[in-house]
Computed example of a mutant assay.
Amino acid sequence: MRNTISYALFATTTFAAIACLTAAPTMPTFAAAPGNAAEPTPVEPDMHEFMEYVFQPSFKALKPAMASEPADKKGWFAIKSNSLILAEGGNLLLIREAQTDAEDWAKHSYEVRDYGGKLYRAAQAKDYTAAKKSYQSMVKSCNACHEQFAGGEHILTP
């Protein structure tokens, strides 16, 4: 009797597991947003406000973290966190329309994203030399954009 119950329990659990693994995955559905839901739009249209609240806090935290090679996990975490925010911020810049020089705007946005991503990956690998190089390249790219689009204001120092 005990073997019959164990077998029945085993069979039931096995069949349930197989059913879960072979069932088609279901995705949650969301109500459509007003307008074109597929089109990303900025929440804050003012670029100064956007930079002040998205980029500036991460840059201000990243700058001292990059001053010297991190001695511990906490130091590398600060670099990874802030570089990822800045890299993804580059993607957010791409959804904003430039009033002039759209190609240059996109180029600067891609550079911030790409150098921020390289910085993030270097921090994951705990490679300070590569991280420092990517950080300096990212800041140079930010400054090139500030020169062109902000009249030379808000120049950053690494």
Rank of each mutant, 00 (worst) to 15 (best):
R2P: 02
T29Q: 15
T41K: 15
D114Q: 10
G151V: 08
S83A: 15
R113D: 07
A32P: 02
P34V: 07
S83D: 02
D114W: 04
G152C: 12
M47Q: 06
L156Y: 05
E69C: 09
G75W: 08
G151I: 06
F77D: 15
A8P: 00
L62P: 12
W105Y: 12
K107G: 01
E111W: 05
C20T: 03
F149S: 06
N3M: 10
A144D: 14
Q124V: 05
S81K: 15
A16F: 09
Y110Q: 12
K140H: 10
D46M: 04
V43C: 06
P28H: 05
A16D: 01
E44C: 07
W76A: 08
A150I: 00
S137M: 10
E44Q: 12
A130K: 15
F15R: 00
E147V: 09
E103Q: 15
L119W: 02
A130D: 01
V139R: 08
F77N: 13
F59L: 07
E103H: 06
K133N: 02
E153C: 01
C20H: 03
F10G: 00
G152H: 11
G116R: 00
Y7H: 10
S141M: 04
Q99T: 09
R2K: 14
I85Y: 07
M1I: 08
Q99P: 03
P42E: 08
A23F: 03
K73T: 15
Y128N: 05
Y7P: 03
A122C: 01
N82C: 05
R113H: 15
